[in-house]
Write a protein that binds this DNA or RNA. Structure first.
Lengths: 222, 222
DNA sequence: TAGATTGTTAATCGATTAACAATC
DNA sequence: TAGATTGTTAATCGATTAACAATC
């Protein structure tokens, strides 16, 4: 891996896709893969892929292609997937519950280690063998279980307060599903996940393609 | 609204954020808002915001600001939120179940109208008053309920087959949560939602910030 | 060697930022 | 009018695409 590499934002966003596709290829027994073939599988141009890989090292062999295992190890390292981050989910609503059950944390180099909520109906239950703790115990459990990343799945009006508690507890990585602007101290990694904008995009493209000449539907707001 | 407008991809991705923030402001009783204030709330520069709005019309008043209601109506129209799209969710796993319960479809100009699965344990139950139908009945129900958008929340290995059935049934908008490349016919709007890349980004930034000199954690794969 | 495929440099494209004239 | 704030044009920045030399 190159020293002092600078990897563009756009490249970083593609790395997880490369990783997943390479994993698949590895599972199929493929040991060497070309940028052409990777591009075909991902819908990304081969040039783009070569540029991305070249930005953090020389993993290909000219005239041959990329060694899947080697590339996988390197992409994984760049992404920090070898770090075994410990994760805590805060908020067991529909979404928090689904994420706890749905996300393959291990495959992303993470371990789900704690789940918090404040409702007496929920605290004490368990998901995937993890007992849900009361949010009051956040600091103690964070220290005890060495939590690195907090996932915020609480209602919007609680998101900032939760972020404050997480960062005060020393957590430096936050994956936020609330749709309000959350502020965190310098040095904290905050990634916002916005689940509803995707649907609006579908709506946008669909509306452009299907002009509503007939105006058959009643406007919803206005 | 301008005719024949070309709105950049980047702008479209920001429109849902503008819409949500303007809704909030409206709720607070604000009738006029400046790009400065909107920018403060969103963490976007005022110049960017003015450029975005100017790309589809003249909604501001120089020296004054933007009329919240007017802007809201226009952003909503651009996004097609007045179209009242009918939505079907396909696949009631953890994620499909959570989306059905969690997403505020109405607020996005959509109505959840159908839910499909293939498991006998699940078909016949209902979520939010909608009875879960067997996927075998997709075509009939799509026609009957005038479904516009399909949400794919099935396992990866079924995603392409589901997409094929949806498009064959005449559905032109797909919101896909499967993490495999899904191909759709020309003219179908496909938006992929990838829930795990966000976590990888957190991992990446965290790894850069906390170099593992100690190498205390055991590599997970290799 | 000949064919294949990478890595890199240059050219293009698109998006953001800066500056400021227009005007409310 | 003076102050404020938009809309637009120009400058910069960043990302993608194209071309090709290097080399396996």
């Amino acid at each position: 891996m190159k020293d002092n590499i600078v990897i563009s934002k756009a490249t970083i966003d593609r790395l997880p896709l490369y990783f997943r596709t390479l994993k698949q290829a590895e599972g199929e027994g493929i040991t060497i893969i070309s940028s052409e073939e990777l591009g075909r599988r991902l819908g990304i141009t081969p040039e783009q892929i070569r540029k991305d890989f070249a930005s953090f090292g020389d993993f290909g062999k000219k005239g041959v292609g990329y060694f899947v295992k080697e590339l996988l190890r390197n992409v994984g390292e760049i992404l920090g997937l070898h770090r075994n981050w410990n994760i805590a989910i805060v908020g067991v609503g529909h979404l928090g519950w689904a994420l706890a059950n749905y996300i393959n944390f291990e495959g992303l180099g993470c371990n789900l280690r704690a789940i918090f909520d404040i409702s007496p109906d929920i605290v004490g239950r368990s998901i995937k063998g993890i007992v849900i703790d009361h949010f009051d115990h956040l600091e103690a459990i964070t220290a005890e279980r060495n939590i690195h990343i907090g996932v915020i799945t609480v209602p919007n009006n609680r998101a900032q307060a939760v972020a404050d508690r997480l960062t005060a507890a020393g957590i430096k990585g936050i994956w936020n599903f609330a749709t309000v602007k959350v502020r965190v101290p310098e040095g904290t990694c905050l990634v916002n996940e916005d689940l509803s904008t995707g649907l609006s995009s579908v709506s946008y493209y669909l509306a452009r393609q299907m002009p509503d000449e007939k105006n058959e539907n009643v406007p919803f707001f206005g």
